Computed example of a mutant assay.
Amino acid sequence: MERNINFDKWKWVQIKKNKQSTVWEQETTPSGWLTTVRKNKTNYIRVPGLINGERAVSDSLIFRQDVEKEEDNQIFHFYLTGNTLMTIDLEFTSFNQIPPEVILRQLNMTDNAVDGFLFLLGELVNDLLVEIDQFEESLHRLMWGVKKKNEMRILEHVFEQRHELMVCKNLLIPIQELKMAIEETDFPQVNNGEIFSRTCKRIDRAQVLLQAYGQELDSIINLEEVISSHRGNEIMKTLTVLTTVFTPIMALGALWGMNFRHMPELEWQYGYLIAVLLIVTSTLLLYRYLKTKGWTGDLLKGKKQDSFLK
């Protein structure tokens, strides 16, 4: 199916992927473009210069990506001149936040194909901004989840959010490149226009948000590293102190647990009492020594209920 939309000042041609190109399309685009561009599966922006005396920008842009499956993405191909926009696999259903009739009305108000393409690009960025808003809500829950219940599942959620953020950034980078390509091409009366300015501001807003949320995630990851390091140190300190404190009990217990025939302590009348007192006294003296040196830290102090380090 091909949809040829003639506006007052320019034309939008939508081509389905499996449709054969017409003579008009072959003459309007570079030789073999319609055949080769369909093989592109990744982002690819090209500024070919003057084609048939017209400035042009092409080729492929991934505008949506599933965060779980690498191969599950949506891509469209385009060829843009001042008077014509040709797209492959960019339908009205590609836009989530604006109905088709509004798209047609707004496009009909634009002065040229470049402004029309910039309007469509701005709406794709607007869809990305909606996803970023949803990401913000999830990040807010994660931030307080670290505070309320810090556990391994929270750490896994942190890295899931980090991956989702990287996917969003990966979608935005080629859009930024496309914006620079349009600036480089220097279409007449476009770079200083209202639509170009609005689209650029949306792209910049998305970039600022992603950068800020990336810094927040980095802070959460750093916090998790500090907490994990502190917990590991506390565990090692606890095991070391307990082992040291109970060394007299283990040593004396091993000594008097021997089965040698000649052990004079076995004949003492108060040997048991002396052994108990010796064990208790040596344990207390050793603990006091560790306490005086400050090596026990806050092992015996209770932690607050809402503490990050509990």
Rank of each mutant, 00 (worst) to 15 (best):
M180R: 15
I51V: 08
A275K: 13
W10V: 08
R3W: 02
E136M: 03
G271W: 15
L90Y: 02
S307Y: 05
V276G: 09
G257D: 15
L299H: 13
T35M: 01
E137H: 07
E68Y: 07
A181Q: 09
N83A: 14
T240H: 13
T199E: 12
M86F: 04
A251I: 15
E177K: 08
E54R: 12
I45G: 00
K291I: 06
W33P: 03
E68N: 09
K201E: 08
N6S: 08
N112M: 10
P99H: 06
I195W: 10
T93Q: 12
F95Y: 02
L210K: 07
I173Y: 02
T281M: 11
E156F: 10
E224R: 11
K179S: 06
F135A: 00
G257T: 13
K16D: 13
I235E: 12
K41R: 06
P100L: 08
R141Q: 12
M143Y: 05
W295M: 07
P264N: 11
Y79H: 04
N192L: 10
Q20K: 08
Y272S: 07
N191P: 08
L290I: 03
R162P: 00
N259P: 12
H230C: 00
S21F: 00
E123S: 00
M109T: 10
H230A: 06
E123M: 09
N112P: 07
L285A: 11
R64Q: 11
Y213I: 01
T281D: 11
I173R: 07
K179Y: 06
E177C: 08
L255W: 13
Y270R: 09
H157W: 09
W144E: 07
I249A: 10
T243V: 09
L252W: 02
G257L: 10
I45W: 01
F246T: 05
